[in-house]
């Protein structure tokens, strides 16, 4: 217990959380700002370079960095004794800090849920990793696209809440 609450260990867990989070949100923004808008401009015969090589690799790092971010973040909140207060949005302790970080945590948890249970299962169909009819592929593409866009939208207030909890004057 004393080892886990050692200030250096607390810092080290925060570093792992931010490191994983940069990879996760960096790849989320790559999908939304670069890959998805770029796909219609790529000639059909060159599209497999993205769908067979780049996207599966990007999705691998995307979903595992999402899980890593959540795990280190939850460990951090537990180490700093605000996990329960933050997940109940600060109402238990009347804490603005815990409400702010709690909003960020819930947005991050919703985003990670979207990654693992909506985006990834649908991407497996659109990329041909699992068998699907053309109609199923079209529906999966739409669902994955919207979940990814929702995550991009949530990443803006999530980061504001996470950084703001400790660094807002």
């Amino acid at each position: 217990m004393s080892f886990l609450s050692d200030p250096y260990i607390v810092f080290f867990v925060r570093w792992l959380h931010v490191l994983s989070g940069i990879m996760w949100i960096g790849l989320l923004w790559y999908f939304n700002f670069v890959q998805t808008p770029g796909m219609p401009k790529i000639p059909d015969e060159q599209k497999p370079a993205i769908t067979k090589v780049i996207a599966p690799s990007a999705l691998f790092w995307f979903r595992w960095s999402a899980l890593s971010t959540i795990i280190w973040g939850l460990i951090q909140a537990w180490q700093l004794h605000y996990i329960q207060s933050a997940l109940t949005l600060g109402f238990l302790t009347q804490s603005a800090h815990d409400m702010r970080i709690g909003f960020g945590m819930w947005m991050g948890l919703i985003m990670a849920f979207n990654v693992w249970f909506i985006i990834w299962p649908n991407q497996k169909k659109t990329l041909g990793i699992v068998q699907a009819t053309p109609e199923e592929k079209a529906r999966a593409g739409r669902a994955g696209f919207l979940a990814s866009r929702i995550n991009t939208m949530l990443s803006i207030p999530m980061l504001y809440a996470m950084v703001g909890a400790s660094h807002m004057a």
């Binding site: 700002f33 603005a96 409400m99 991009t152 939208m153 803006i156 207030p157 504001y160 809440a161």
Partner: peptide, 30 residues
Amino acid sequence: MSNPLQTLQGTIILGIVITVVVDLIVRYTF
């Protein structure tokens, strides 16, 4: 009206609106 999440601009504007709402909630709750 089309879904704002259809475009990147709509997505970013919605994200900023949620940011402002969350900030106001935190500022004025306690």
